[in-house]
C-alpha cells in the first residue's frame, strides 16, 4: 500500500475532500489535517513539493486556490505521486470542465467516485482517463 490518504484543501485551509486508506479516528484526522495544512500552506512556490510529517511523507501540489495533498509511505516514489495528482486533476477537469473548488464541494460524491476508480486500498487502479470516467458517465446518462 503506497497512498495513505488524499486531501483537497483550499487556500484557507478548509478541507474539501478527504479520503483515508487507513483507519484514523475523527479527532486524529482533524488534528492531522490541521498540522499538515499549516505546514504545507506556509511553504513557498520555489520550495519542493514534499514535506515529511510524523511517519508520512506528504506530496502536495497547488492548483489555483486548491491544494492537493497525498500522504504516502516513506518508500513511495514522490515524483510519481506528483504525476498522479496531475492525472487526478486532469481527470476531474475532463469531467467538470475546468474544475474548481465549488465543483468538488457540490459534487463531492462524484469526486469520490472518480477517486474510487483511480485508487483502491492505497494502490493505483487505473490511469487512463476514459476508463476512469466511463462508469461515471454511464451513471450520469442513466439519471
Amino acid at each position: 500500500m503506497g497512498i495513505r490518504f488524499i486531501l483537497m484543501v483550499n487556500k484557507q485551509g478548509q478541507t474539501r475532500l478527504a479520503q483515508y486508506y487507513e483507519y484514523l479516528t475523527i479527532e486524529e484526522r482533524r488534528a492531522l489535517e490541521g498540522e499538515i495544512v499549516r505546514k504545507c500552506l506556509a511553504r513557498s512556490e520555489q520550495q519542493c513539493s514534499f514535506v515529511e510529517h510524523r511517519n508520512y511523507k506528504i506530496v502536495y501540489r497547488r492548483y489555483a486556490s486548491l491544494f492537493f495533498l497525498v500522504g504516502v509511505d516513506n518508500d513511495e516514489n514522490e515524483l510519481a505521486i506528483l504525476e498522479f495528482i496531475h492525472l487526478l486533476v486532469e481527470t476531474m477537469d475532463r469531467h467538470f470542465g475546468n474544475v474548481c473548488e465549488l465543483d468538488i464541494m457540490f459534487h463531492l460524491e462524484k469526486a469520490h467516485f472518480m477517486l474510487e476508480e483511480m485508487v483502491m486500498n492505497g494502490c493505483i487502479v487505473e490511469t487512463s482517463k476514459p476508463n476512469i470516467l466511463a462508469p461515471i458517465q454511464l451513471m450520469d446518462k442513466a439519471s
Binding site: 475532500l17 484526522r29 489535517e33 463531492l108 460524491e109 442513466a142
Partner: peptide, 30 residues
Amino acid sequence: AKLMFIHMLGYPTHFGQMECLKLIASPEFP
C-alpha cells in the same frame, strides 16, 4: 450525501452507519 459532507468537515456521523447498510441492500443502482 449530507452525512458524508459533515463527516469530511470532521464531525461524528456514526448514527448514519445503518443507513449505509440499508442503501446497499437497495436494488436501485444510484
